[in-house]
């Protein structure tokens, strides 16, 4: 089977609804299919990857730690929309460090996050084969 470009589009904040957690679980399961996977974070989806989340106070699992395991699953392309951050009073510094180890570069640790403009995000979407919306 030819490799296809899969994009998971995340537009919801975590905890208030189950979208974010469901998306993450689907991503982890589908990682076994070895397709080219991209995650997009826009609108309230950017809240999924902010630092210092502590949902234990709500009796919920802190699944934000799990985004840091994505590199182990060969998911290294996480795109975050700049306008969505700005609209919410956030900057890149509010985001967690999410990294992967580059096999082709002596396992150097590199950031998986790329901040893109809204126009760049639109172009990324247009370039996909399959979209999963959450």
């Amino acid at each position: 089977m030819a490799v296809k470009k899969f994009m998971y589009v995340n537009r919801k904040a975590p905890y208030g609804t189950v979208y974010a957690l469901e998306s993450l679980e689907v991503v982890l399961i589908a990682a076994a299919f070895e397709q080219e996977v991209t995650l997009a974070f826009l609108d309230d989806g950017v809240y999924q990857i902010v630092r210092n989340q502590n949902p234990k106070l709500l009796g919920m699992k802190n699944f934000s730690s799990t985004y840091k395991a994505l590199g182990d699953y060969d998911i290294k392309q996480l795109y975050v929309e700049r306008e969505s951050l700005i609209e919410r009073g956030l900057t890149e510094d509010d985001l967690m460090d999410i990294t992967y180890e580059d096999e082709g570069d002596d396992w150097a640790e590199k950031s998986s996050l790329t901040i893109v403009s809204r126009a760049e995000m639109a172009a990324l979407m247009a370039a996909q084969d399959v979209m999963f919306s959450f």
Partner: peptide, 11 residues
């Protein structure tokens, strides 16, 4: 403890 998931066998 670190990632809040049990890793897939491959991982």
């Amino acid at each position: 403890e670190e990632y809040q998931i049990a890793p897939a066998v491959r991982v």
